[in-house]
Design a binder for these strands. Structure first.
Lengths: 228, 228
DNA sequence: CGCGCGCTTGACTAACTTCAAAGATGGTGG
DNA sequence: CCACCATCTTTGAAGTTAGTCAAGCGCGCG
């Protein structure tokens, strides 16, 4: 287990993570009561079934949300990157577990303060609903990926999504392992690795170590992703 | 194309479709301004990209929401049954198309009236958020199904879900075709059909025609579904 | 510097898809 | 009312993709 240090990569950019999201100004009153949480790689933030007393914002690092089948098969529903909120959609209990993908810094807020804020401030309630709708939209896009795309299309789609969320159109840092990517895309570690190699052989991407990907030909990638 | 008649199957039950959903009482003011829409099988309600001026409630029949890839591959994100709301999560435009699976009756409401209601009545805003969160939860469960379950597990999970939504624990009417089911579960028509036959051979289900399924052994089905 | 974990690659296997054709089903028109 | 036809479903056989099993490589941490 790596020593817990302040995560230095993936600093929170000043961009809005999503259009229509809550602005920092609207959350200013929350920031006062939010506390900072430092996590080492693979550390659990909460587990499926835990009571949901807090929600979180990623400051640096990355988080995965997982669901497990009875025999241990795992699916990663989402990766949360700096600026993203975690567990805004929870009811009384969490329906998935959340773990740090790398050394990670979070801001933690009590859910009660959110309820209070939304009941007083309808504008915030609307912003919150927009955020959740965007998550639903993303989930539905992922359904198409898992239901109908082949391995190359899945990896191409994933790389383009990560590039867009990074804010950098052609350089991606991947904080998660090949196994994490596999469990997010419904593949195996080996197939993910093979597909990366395949895309590199085609000249569409270049790899600098395992974690850094350069997108050499975005139009080709979009072609491969079979975007709707 | 079948003649458009008032749909007689799948009448709206008096149950609450979801816990935490909007009650009929809370929507009473909407009901006055809602208008009834009758649809023949395969008729389009709205298409991806259309401006979202209305939302809908299924009264009788069934609706599918679809997304398409560039080359025509289709994924059905959700089936909407009597009592379910459609397009509560839309922003300005629809991000999927909606079509009648069978002859269907809908109630249609202007979105503006919903915005009005939520801004005046925070309780409704909260109920709406709960409904959308439940949809997100369902989508995430479906991600696990598509990402990690095999054909038998997918069909077993689907049958159990339909039984629960039907309200009848062991008799299911399936208004949709095998092809629709396949596009919902990320399989082909042939694999769906073969898997039904397989489950029948095991004595877990019985088929009365293609559309009526009797669940003969729920514990076995739940075992096969690999519920988390 | 060495060890461990994660990544890559290869050979083989299994599951699902594809292609093909026959068998039900139900709606329509004579 | 019955027969026909289109459509959906079922089943079989061959093909393809991704999974499994296994082994070597390389980066990074200690």
């Amino acid at each position: 287990m790596s020593r817990l240090v302040a995560a230095t990569n993936y600093e929170s950019p000043s961009r809005q993570p999503f259009p229509g999201s809550l602005t920092d100004r609207e959350l200013a009153s929350l920031d006062r009561i939010g506390s900072v949480v430092l996590l080492a790689r693979d550390q659990t933030i909460f587990s499926e079934g835990d009571s949901a007393r807090y929600f979180y914002k990623v400051i640096a690092g990355a988080v995965r949300s997982c669901r497990l089948l009875a025999d241990g098969r795992r699916h990663i529903c989402e990766f949360f990157l700096p600026g993203d909120f975690i567990a805004l959609d929870a009811d009384d209990i969490h329906h998935f577990s959340a773990e740090a993908v790398a050394d990670t810094t979070l801001k933690r807020y009590p859910r009660s303060s959110l309820d209070q804020l939304t009941s007083v401030e309808p504008r915030v309630a609307k912003g919150l609903r927009s955020l959740i709708c965007l998550r639903l939209l993303a989930a539905q896009q992922h359904l198409v990926l898992l239901g109908r795309k082949n391995a190359v299309e899945r990896i191409a789609s994933f790389l383009l999504e990560m590039a867009e969320r990074n804010g950098d159109a052609d350089h991606i840092s991947l904080p998660m392992t090949r196994g994490d990517i596999a469990d997010h895309l419904g593949l195996t570690t080996e197939t993910v690795s093979r597909t990366f190699s395949h895309l590199r052989a085609q000249g569409v991407i270049e790899l600098e170590g395992a974690a850094n990907v350069l997108l050499m030909d975005n139009p080709a990638l979009e072609e491969l992703a079979e975007v709707a």
